[in-house]
């Protein structure tokens, strides 16, 4: 399984046809990974369904719900029934419609935060990991990056995000900034660790001996082999970000619910309104968060198993202890070294 994990970083310029072939190979790898564990497949299917639903809600929401956003129906505080799948609140909002209208926004915020954290934090990690020779200017930079990262990692990220959200006030951008400010260090640590593991492998030395420039080595050869664990972490992380967002919303620092539908703020709004007479009001957004996070976690957790050299052996069915098999943290690395 290791060899299919990452396309070999070949030095030859690829034509359009080869790119297509590579895509097909990636699809086959994905299918093999998904087939290995039914739960991973379930997670993948759920993620696809959620993605499609989000797009449909943006393009043609009436395929999913008959109501317009923020539409007051004539039913007040009705429990779940065929007309209102998740009931309505005392003001007449249809909970299912509100929850679904929040889906694209919640996904977009979670993706924005996770992607920005991955790109920003990852770049810092790559720099800190690759150019870390002590004594040089870049080595000093690397130390500075690591110290700052350590400080951020000492915070429970949720608490720091809450504190920042307090001072920034409420709003979509404020929310993104508050979480992002606490989120990037995890990627810095991850990418740095992977870079350190990869950069002394023979194929990097070979590339350097062949006269490849440092920048090109980092971008084409190191980055390629760091990418895989980062993507897996990213998949799991979207779930974590969503849960964090919901907590920030619950505390009352998210968006302003009756104006903007967002799951966390819906929870907060209905909790403040008193949930005991209408418990279904928190069920809608709560279930939405639960299902979305579960989908991404099932997928990410399964992918992580495949990457983890210890469980990979078991997955491959060899089950042999062989401490010599599968060099850790370099999945498929050396295979393309021949460049």
């Amino acid at each position: 399984m290791a060899e299919e994990g990452v396309p070999a970083p070949d030095a030859a310029p690829s034509a359009g046809g080869r790119a297509l072939g590579r895509l097909g190979r990636a699809a086959r790898t994905l299918w093999r990974v998904l087939r290995a564990n039914p739960l991973t497949l379930a997670g993948f299917v759920l993620v696809v369904i959620i993605g499609v639903a989000a797009v449909v809600m943006l393009v043609a929401p009436h395929l999913i719900t008959p109501y317009d956003p923020r539409q007051l129906t004539n039913a007040y505080g009705v429990g779940p029934d065929p007309a209102h799948w998740l009931g309505t609140d005392s003001a007449g909002y249809d909970i299912f419609a509100e929850t679904m209208y929040a889906l694209p926004l919640d996904l977009a915020i979670a993706f924005a935060i996770t992607t920005a954290a991955m790109l920003g934090g990852g770049a810092l990690g790559l720099i800190a990991g690759y150019w870390d020779r002590p004594g040089s200017a870049s080595g000093a930079l690397s130390v500075v990056i690591l110290r700052i990262t350590d400080i951020f990692l000492a915070f429970p990220s949720l608490i720091l995000a809450l504190a920042i959200a307090v001072s920034l006030g409420r709003g979509t951008w404020q929310l993104i900034v508050a979480v992002l400010a606490t989120w990037w260090p995890y990627y810095t640590r991850l990418v740095r660790g992977e870079t350190l593991a990869v950069k002394h492998l023979p194929y990097i030395t070979a590339a350097r001996a062949a006269g490849v420039t440092e920048g090109r080595i980092v971008l084409r050869h190191v980055l390629r082999n760091v990418l895989e664990p980062v993507v897996v972490y990213f998949t799991l992380d979207i779930g974590t970000v969503l849960v964090t967002l919901s907590t920030i919303g619950f505390v009352g620092l998210g968006l302003n619910y009756p104006q903007t539908a967002e799951w966390g703020s819906m929870l907060s709004y209905y909790y403040a309104a008193g949930i005991v007479p209408e418990p279904w009001t928190i069920l809608g957004p709560g279930l939405a968060i639960f299902i979305t996070v579960l989908a991404f976690s099932l997928l990410g957790d399964g992918l992580r198993d495949v990457l983890d050299p210890r469980s990979r052996r078991v997955l491959a069915g060899t089950g042999v202890a062989g401490a010599t098999s599968a060099a850790p943290a370099s999945p498929g690395g050396p295979s393309g070294a021949g460049a």
Binding site: N37, P38, L39, G239, V243, S246, T247, F250, L267, Y271, I282, G286, I289, F290, I291, V293, L294, S297, L298, D301, S311, V314, L315
Partner: peptide
């Protein structure tokens, strides 16, 4: 590992993971 008990345990801990604390 790889059998139903493994899947069951995984669903259990991922359920906890995916539950918003508040809910």
């Amino acid at each position: 590992s790889g059998r139903w008990a493994d899947h069951f345990v995984r669903i259990f801990y991922l359920t906890g993971w995916a539950t918003p604390t508040y809910l």
